[in-house]
Amino acid sequence: MAQIEVRGLRKSFRAPLRSAGPFGALKDLLHRRTRTVEALKGITFEIDAGQIVGCIGPNGAGKSTAIKIIAGIMNPDGGEATVLGRTPWADRIAHVRHIGVVFGQRTQLWWDLPVIDSFALLREIYDVPRREYEQTLADVVERFKLAEVLDSPVRQLSLGLRMRCDLAAALLHRPSILFLDEPTIGLDAVSKLALREAIRDWSAERGLTVLLTTHDMDDIEDLCRRVLLIADGSLLLDGAIDDLRRMSSARRTLMIDLAAGVANVELEGAELVRREGDRLWLEYDPEQVATHELIARAAAAFPIRDLTVADRPIEEVVAQVYRDAP
């Protein structure tokens, strides 16, 4: 049975319109004008236990609104949601007991206290039995390599370490579902890899369901076999990452290193999208021209030192999809 079921979720906001000029604020006070923004126009999906699902979409597309509703901190205007058999906004306190949430942008730890003190406070707040807590604590400390930082105040931790502590904190009460809002934002490459590994392993070992939002396509490629693409309040795609690639044209890139300075780099069937000195990036559609055919043409046309063929970077695919979104 699905752990998260969402049917026709709708939400709109009335945003105040602000007048410009020195007396704008005064004018607004006397006469409030608002416009209605439809953040969610009816989205439907289900997530089963143990899945890691990535939620992507342009800023302001509605993905945070969707997460907020499912996490229980906002009511929808219409539609239904059931998480672990409960309606999140109707029964907030019972609901949040069984979920964990990590915001990439802010910590839920106590800034001036040692990490272990924050963990102990969370044990009290979630009413976790001592034995269970100690076992989970030992697990997260080992798994996320936190032994050395437990006694440091949170404010002294690097962002990468702090995120790992935040993730550990969200797991101490053994939630069934974990929500991650841009978990890797601002992290260096090593920290990103460590965090992804932690999430992946924990989910695989314990059947933890994970719903994460991100702008980092590597998060998606590394972690999620399933992607929800929300744009302009609608669910544009619910599928695998390859489905996302197929959504935009299936164009590929041929990168060529030329042997010497060649002025004319026109090639029939391909479009020059970028050039840096002797390096060219050509885009083509494999449906129109076969890859080996194009390489043969290129080899005939200019002196080539090296070449590679690549799928279009997923970032570009996503940017294209966002641009094409209604």
Binding site: I73, I93, V96, R97, R106, Q108, I125, Y126, D127
Partner: peptide, 14 residues
């Protein structure tokens, strides 16, 4: 204003 209140809503206490 900063959205920190959401964090309180995510904890199982009034």
């Amino acid at each position: 204003r900063t959205g920190d209140f959401d964090r309180l809503l995510l904890r199982p206490l009034p």
